[in-house]
Simulated assay, not measured.
Amino acid sequence: MPAMGYMYEGIERAKVAIKTHYKGIEEKYMLLWDIIDRRWNMQLHSSLHAAAASLNPSIFYSPNFKIDLKVRNGFQDTMLKMATTQEDKMDITKEHPMYVNAQGALGTDFAIMGRTLNAPGDWWAGYGYEIPTLQRFAIRILSQPCSSHWCCWNWTTFESLHSKKRNRAELEKFNDLVFVHCNLWLQSIYQKRDGKCKPIAFDEIDVGSDEWPTELDSPAPLLDDSWLDNLPLG
């Protein structure tokens, strides 16, 4: 599901929960924090995650959300990369304060209720019409799926495609096939859900009863991609 807007806050909440579990004893929780930070900083964290957190209304308008330098700089960096024209940059400069201060349609009773009741992308689609440029970028960012499961699944798909008599194809072609296959899978999930996604509620997640995945878990089934055999590789 589109979880990009929840990753940044989720990591921060996880660290706080770990610290609380070890009753604030630094020598006990810092080892786990170091592991999380190392993986987060090397492989997962990007300006996009920070920008997504700042554009997620359920997080941004929460009184407990702290807008630190990483969030501010992440938003700036992401907007500079996405806004390729001077007109878009000027529009975002004008529109962003309206979002920060919940002005106009963003501050109505329906918009306030929708912050937690609607998925972030749906919220922007419904209430961000007065700031159309920022609305367009926010929907693009907040509609991105984000899960470590897909990373493992992509490698499984890569190995499957590699075994289908395509050994002489260039590595770039394999990456393209994995990209197409992953997007087909996402499209099928989206169609099965009728395009509806529920917002993530951190307070409703029961971490203690979760079963962690193991290497014995079966991978996601592959879609029928026989038609890819006929694609030209040259």
Rank of each mutant, 00 (worst) to 15 (best):
L184R: 14
M79H: 06
G5P: 06
D210G: 01
P199N: 06
G128R: 05
H21F: 12
P120G: 10
C152D: 14
G126A: 10
D109R: 08
I189H: 14
I11T: 04
A201Q: 05
C146T: 12
I189D: 14
G10C: 04
S226M: 01
P132E: 03
A52I: 09
K198W: 05
P63Y: 09
R13N: 13
M7F: 08
F110I: 08
M82R: 15
W185P: 00
D77H: 10
M4F: 07
L216I: 00
N167M: 03
F75I: 04
G104Y: 11
P232E: 02
N64T: 15
D122W: 00
N73D: 14
M7D: 06
R168C: 09
Q191D: 15
W153H: 11
S58Q: 09
V71R: 05
T116E: 11
V100D: 08
T133L: 05
L216M: 08
N183G: 03
L161K: 01
I35R: 06
G195K: 10
T20W: 01
N175Q: 11
K164T: 05
L55F: 12
Q86S: 15
P57I: 03
L161Y: 00
I189G: 09
T20C: 04
T214L: 13
Q103F: 07
G208Y: 01
Y129V: 03
D210F: 12
F137N: 02
S143D: 08
L69G: 00
S218H: 00
M113T: 08
Q103P: 00
C197F: 14
K165A: 14
H181N: 08
D68C: 15
A220T: 01
I59W: 03
A51W: 06
Y29C: 01
W153E: 12
S218Y: 00
R38G: 09
I189V: 14
N230F: 09
Y190T: 02
S163N: 10
A14W: 00
C146K: 12
R72T: 15
I11W: 04
A52Q: 10
K70M: 14
E215F: 10
N64L: 13
G195R: 07
T157Q: 11
E12N: 13
D229V: 01
L44P: 02
K70P: 00
D229S: 10
W185R: 13
C146V: 14
D229N: 12
P219L: 12
T78C: 02
L134D: 07
A50Y: 01
A14V: 02
Y61W: 03
R13Y: 06
Y29F: 15
D68Y: 15
G208D: 06
D203Y: 00
W155K: 08
K81L: 13
E12V: 05
A201M: 02
S46R: 01
S62G: 02
V178H: 04
G208L: 00
T78A: 05
S54Q: 09
D34T: 11
G114I: 02
S188P: 00
A119W: 04
M82H: 10
E26Q: 09
W124D: 00
I67C: 06
L233R: 09
E95L: 02
W124V: 00
A119F: 05
G126R: 08
S58H: 03
Q187G: 07
A51S: 15
P232G: 03
P63I: 07
T85E: 01
V71F: 05
K165Q: 13
W123G: 09
Y127W: 08
A53Y: 07
Q86C: 10
F179T: 13
I59Q: 03
T108G: 12
E12S: 14
I141Q: 05
S147Q: 15
M4Q: 10
M90Y: 04
E87D: 11
